[in-house]
Design a binder for these strands. Structure first.
Lengths: 193, 193
DNA sequence: CGTCTATTTGAATGTACTCAAAAGCGGTGG
DNA sequence: CCACCGCTTTTGAGTACATTCAAATAGACG
């Protein structure tokens, strides 16, 4: 079980002694999701928060016209899940599926509560994580308000150059909030320059 | 100094004993901002996180064409600030000003760090706060991707009926990401039905 | 009461979408 | 290993949603 990655990840924010690290690890469960496999469907209860060791997931909704809208991509070193569903144990708003075969470490709500209880440092760990996520999301909201589709696309490939190579164009369009057709037109325009 | 509101707010998530509450309060500074007054300008360093006791603030950016885009409104019981600027003590991306005369309780970065140190429960407090803010923002991102301007407007007045009455239409347009002119057209359409 | 700002209205324009069809690409089975 | 099938991307034409510009009207505040 590939534990090093998550211990390294945690150690960027808090220091664990041996006992604490062992407890933490004992609360995790490994899972592998094949390409195109689902981690969560709209309407399910989200039972776990999920740390990605390897692979790529997308969190998305499907609107009344059947169009997919991606609220986030997850790759190595990221946590994914439907947080509201997880916390309230109510039906999920989002689908989560794999764009590549993906290896996860999962923690259930009871286990996470136990972890907060026994190792309160994890309050800080997740406080910092959510803090950062808040900043990232606020940025994205601001950019969605301020920028045209063209600017948002350029910003995306500038900020996530790795992702652009791994992910079909169609998915990038669903993240930017435009149609694949329109994204194709934008790219053609750039190619001419 | 009106402290009850913030103590009540904190007690929704963590329990403080008398000493802890006194320490917390001792780290806060009160401030009043007049209508149209600024709490923060783009380029300033954001020195404090700010809890709103009374009034209404807006956090916004101004794009290259001089157009304002509102990333959030803040009213009673909310925290506002430019979080990235606050944490890194680097120049702010956002302006924050008052739509109404607003009363704040402010905590500086050194004081907040001291608070985390001396009363670690506050790690949990802010962890939960950021958790909730994350969910709210993710929702907004999803709605910006999924909905037309018309749907977003209806959603807004449904979700924040109090705000709609307190805030000029122009500001709502800047929050929804549309022009005031177009919002006016939408409203006319509804009035006819 | 007068000034300044917000809102409304109308016309012309632009950005992004829909629909339809063709071309490209990748995975799978024969 | 090649051929085929399904999915993604491209291309083009027509359309819809939202913007810009300009001017008139309404409302708020000193």
């Amino acid at each position: 079980m590939n534990i090093d990655l998550i211990l390294q990840h945690v150690s960027r924010y808090i220091q664990l002694n041996k006992n604490e690290a062992e407890l933490f690890i004992s609360l995790l469960k490994q899972k592998t999701i094949p390409r195109k496999g689902f981690l969560l469907r709209q309407g399910d209860i989200c039972k776990t928060e999920n740390f990605i060791i390897r692979g790529c997931l997308r969190t998305y909704s499907i609107d009344e016209n059947g169009v997919e809208h991606i609220v986030m991509f997850g790759i190595e070193d990221w946590w994914v899940g439907d947080l509201y569903s997880f916390l309230s144990q109510s039906p999920a708003s989002y689908f989560i599926d794999a764009l590549e075969e993906t290896e996860l470490l999962q923690i259930s709500k009871p286990h996470l509560d136990e972890l907060y209880e026994k190792v309160p440092k994890f309050e800080r760990f997740f406080r910092v994580l959510f803090q950062n996520a808040f900043i990232t999301q606020q940025n994205r909201i601001n950019q969605n308000l301020s920028f045209t589709a063209e600017q948002r696309y350029l910003e995306f490939i500038h900020k996530y150059p790795q992702l652009e190579l791994r992910i079909p164009q169609k998915q990038i369009a669903a993240y930017l909030g435009i149609t694949p057709v329109f994204l194709s037109m934008l790219r053609k325009k750039f190619a001419l320059k």
